[in-house]
Design a protein around this nucleic acid. Structure first.
Length: 494
RNA sequence: GGCGCUAUGGUGCAGCGGUUAGCACGCGGCCCUUUCAAGGCUGAAACAUGGGUUCAAUUCCCAUUAGCGCUACCA
């Protein structure tokens, strides 16, 4: 609670070597929630010092993903590629103070030594040979030779830091390599640029993935060498695939945007992500059950570093799907409409019906929607005349000609009806069934398929009213003509 | 291999020395019912193992095991 009064400065610092993946998105979300909860500032920083692998299109992809998730930032985006002079400056400072030294070893030499060490069963750490070069010699060789700059890790002792989620973490300095700060081409490495920026940008909390735990002592060493105050570190456990290995492409969708393409609603994804590795603690509702549906305002209010769990979490698609149905059901239909229109646009469909009609159809259908794509696939019959019949539904409910013929006959009763309400349409059908000595269910099931193309739909008579008399009559009359094309396939289950 | 982190049902979490170990997703059953969802009721399902500490360990400590991460002039 004390966090409320504390002005924090945090950052999301993706490397544009790929799209915004699920793990990165959650890191961004946690930083965002923390910044908003504390009334602090979120900085977006693009870590593109690896020119080989970075690209501007990846940056756009990352921003697109954040925007979709509803995450905004207060400062930036700052590009590390445009701040090279800052890193050179801290490098010079470190060199001058004796915390760094020039290394004249070539990449090839390093590699062969490392291979030899591994073969001999020794740890493949840099042997610090250039650290022993006298400064005068180093100085003169610098004019003629290319060199990298390495950090001189203290010989003994340990580097320890407090982590807001893990507690005290300690590494023996003897296990730390004299890591490279500046490459021989003059480009700073990640180790140098993060620390420089994190200090420059006056960050108070570093919330990032647990894959950075091992990097942290190297950074702490630099803070100390530079005389800078340490921020609070918070290492968030990683997100794993169903096989409990780190989530990656082979697990299917890992890009945040691919979930948009799958018809996931952004709030659902955000809610799901927030609860992956974090809980607000026990939060019973009136029935004594834990609530899990939180809108962004609640997420912001509830968020705290203390609630972050220490262990890795497995990404669960079923749970995501559940959040999605909950959110779609709860969405006001006017908020759903633009999202659904995007799905329609993908299949080249533009509705001609007035929005009011569209909205009431959405209200009718949304309790049964699994995702947004349903509106452009299984639910198409509600919005346009051109739709496909689910072969399985036809096989189950409209297989026999007698039923089809009865439906055609039933159509004329509807045609003659003066009233067309849920009650009246039901009455007509039941009277018709009775007159023909047939169970109403057979007609109901058959009508559903003839009207919607699907075996699954809202209450049939609500569907009839929503579709309107004209369409109901027309589709029922066409019952005998329904053919399931060999090429037509059942809607893809998500 | 070395170093680090972690360890409650299948999954996500709750628990913070004494509980019939709770909730959610998923799974099974029943009810409701024109289909399918939803909803209501209900069932199966967990404290990794071994040592300590303690009157008492799921909870604290150590070890083992397992998983993950790092081990680059990538980030």
């Amino acid at each position: 609670m004390s966090e409320f009064s504390q002005k924090s400065r945090v950052r999301f610092a993706p490397s544009p070597t790929g799209y915004l993946h699920v793990g990165g998105a959650r890191t961004a979300l946690f930083n965002w929630l923390f910044a908003r909860h504390t009334g602090g500032t979120l900085i977006l920083r693009i870590e593109d010092t690896d020119f080989e692998r970075s690209s501007e299109s990846m940056v756009e992809g990352i921003l697109e993903g954040m925007t979709w998730l509803g995450l905004d930032w207060d400062e930036g985006p700052f590009y590390q590629s445009k701040r090279l002079d800052h890193y050179t400056a801290t490098a010079a400072k470190l060199l001058a103070s004796g915390h760094a030294y020039r290394c004249f070893c070539t990449k090839e030499e390093l590699e062969s030594r490392r291979a030899a060490a591994t073969a001999a069963g020794r740890p493949p750490m840099y042997d610090q040979r250039c650290r022993r070069i006298p400064s005068a010699e180093s100085e003169s060789r610098a004019a003629a030779e290319t060199f990298a700059l390495r950090f001189a890790v203290p010989g003994g002792g340990a580097t320890t830091f407090e982590d807001a989620v893990l507690g005290t973490v300690s590494f023996a300095n003897s296990d730390l390599e004299d890591f490279v700060l500046v490459r021989s081409d003059g480009i700073p490495t990640y180790h140098l640029s993060v620390v420089t920026d994190d200090i420059d940008m006056r960050l108070t909390h570093i919330i990032r993935g647990a894959d950075h735990i091992s990097n942290t002592p190297k950074q702490v060493l630099q803070y100390n060498a530079l005389g800078a105050k340490l921020p609070v570190f918070a290492h968030v456990p990683l997100i794993l695939g169903p096989d409990k290995t780190r989530l990656s492409k082979r697990h299917g969708a890992t890009s945040v945007i691919s979930y948009k393409d799958l018809g996931i609603v952004p709030e659902a994804f955000r809610n799901f992500l927030a609860l992956l590795g974090w809980t607000p603690g026990p939060l019973k509702d009136a029935d004594g059950k834990d609530r899990e549906i939180f809108d962004s305002a609640e997420l912001i209010r509830l968020f705290s570093l203390e609630g972050i769990s220490k262990s890795n979490a497995v990404f669960n698609n079923d749970k995501l799907a559940w959040f999605n149905t909950e959110y779609i059901r709860a969405y006001p239909s006017d908020k759903l409409l633009p999202l659904i229109e995007e799905e329609w646009a993908k299949i080249g469909f533009t509705p001609t019906a007035p929005d009011t009609e569209l909205l009431s159809l959405i209200d009718l259908l949304k309790p049964r929607a699994r995702n947004l794509r349903d509106f452009a696939t299984a639910f198409l019959a509600y919005f346009r005349e051109d739709f496909e019949f689910d072969p399985a539904a036809v096989a189950k409910y409209l297989k026999d000609d007698p039923v089809r013929i009865l439906l055609v006959e039933l159509a004329s009763h509807y045609e003659a009806a003066t009233e067309f309400t849920e009650a009246s349409t039901e009455q007509i059908l039941r009277n018709f069934a009775e007159a023909h000595q047939i169970k109403a269910g057979i007609l109901i099931n058959g009508s559903r398929v003839a009207l919607t193309g699907q075996g699954v739909a809202p209450s049939l008579f609500a569907v009839m009213v929503a579709l309107g008399k004209e369409r109901v009559v027309r589709r029922l009359k066409a019952a005998t003509e329904i053919v399931v094309l060999a090429t037509s396939v059942a809607p893809v289950a998500q």
